[in-house]
Write a protein that binds this DNA or RNA. Structure first.
Lengths: 205, 205
DNA sequence: TGCCAAAAATAACACCGTTGCGATACGCTG
DNA sequence: CAGCGTATCGCAACGGTGTTATTTTTGGCA
């Protein structure tokens, strides 16, 4: 054998970095392998050697997005109060999306037409959402939340954060709208909607 | 002058129809003006005469999508009970999305990279969501919902339906998951979260 | 009937993702 | 230390895209 692992890691990172910049600057449409290679001072073939194809390169961005997202989720302090913790995780979700909106598009809104995450990437994505389910399961077991399947609650929470954030990112929200305040209220309203009926006073802290 | 308005209306409809089929069959990536023109037995130039550009053609699909969506919203019977009516509109929203998922992608998830709706189309989109705000405003005035800005509640409701539906359409929901049931529950939990605290028993029917 | 502008066809342009081919450069084996 | 073999990468091409300049067709009105 010969030359088994030259694969320039610095070039790999540079390409990923530049790819993110291209998408962030001019939208997913502007990510072209030719421009990317030219910017990095190399050729399109290098991209194929390093990643395999354009979707594979996007898959690397997808993974990086979930890595950052997971890190942000993991470092949000939890209190043990289910409603407060769900709101806090929702805040982290939005903060992550606003910090890297182009990555959010790749991760959740399929902003690059040809791309589907591979099995590893999907597994990582599922893992990242585990903390959410843990909180909910606990709240149901403790009788704080109503007795419905935990997946139902988890999907509901994911749905509202994803819905509001993607509406915000695609510019669908009205002008002069206090997004931060409304987001907070909507999350709280949603979380409180899952409380057991006899516990549903508005602020159980 | 001569030949001021030949603009074949039948061809226009045929192109729109076929464009929808192409996207529905193989995704937004598969909508190519050349293939579209060939399928319709004409040339790409005809598309430019009729629509102007590819984004303009997509804009026509966007408008058609909101037309169907608005019609479905308008014919859902309302009871006057805010929670029930919000759930009913949410059901109609999902039914519309599942009936024309490719149109939903164009309307709400920017599934075609180069496309932005023009001013008329955006206006139509805003009009379509008016019934929602009317119900909410009434519920707040009547003291059924908590005293928060109506836009906040409207965006919250829109957020959860959009979030859940787009998660469903992009295949992000787990297998063996009763979407219909969970969707219904999540909508109800969300709507009830906006009730005034003293009214928040679970089933006020 | 004939004119003339609008509509549509042909063919070109610039760009895209991808891929064969050839040159290069590097690690392992002798 | 020499050199072989292969992974890597630059060049150039292929088929595809949206778009447009040019030319041809066509149909309503004078």
């Amino acid at each position: 054998m010969a030359r088994p692992r030259t694969h320039d890691e610095a070039l790999r990172l540079k390409l990923l970095d530049r790819a993110g910049e291209l998408i962030a600057a001019d939208g997913p449409k502007a990510l072209s392998l030719r421009k990317l290679a030219a910017d990095a001072g190399t050729s399109t073939t290098a991209v194929y050697s390093l990643f395999g194809s354009k979707p594979d390169l996007v898959n690397a961005l997808y993974t990086e997005g979930f890595r950052r997202f997971g890190a942000r989720m993991a470092r949000t302090p939890l209190t043990g109060d289910a409603v407060e913790d769900l709101v806090a995780l929702g805040r982290a979700y939005r903060a992550s999306a606003l910090a890297d909106p182009h990555l959010y598009g790749i991760m959740f809104t399929r902003s690059i037409p040809g791309f589907e995450p591979n099995e590893d990437a999907e597994q990582l994505a599922r893992e990242t959402l585990k903390p959410l389910e843990r909180i909910i399961r606990r709240a149901i077991e403790d009788g704080v939340f109503a007795d419905v399947p935990p997946e139902t609650v988890a999907v509901g929470c994911w749905g509202i954060v994803h819905g509001l954030v993607s509406l915000e990112l695609t510019g669908n929200l009205p002008e002069e709208f206090d997004v931060t305040e409304s987001y907070e209220r909507a999350l709280r309203a949603n979380a409180e909607g899952w409380l057991r009926p006899q516990n549903s006073d508005s602020n159980p802290s």
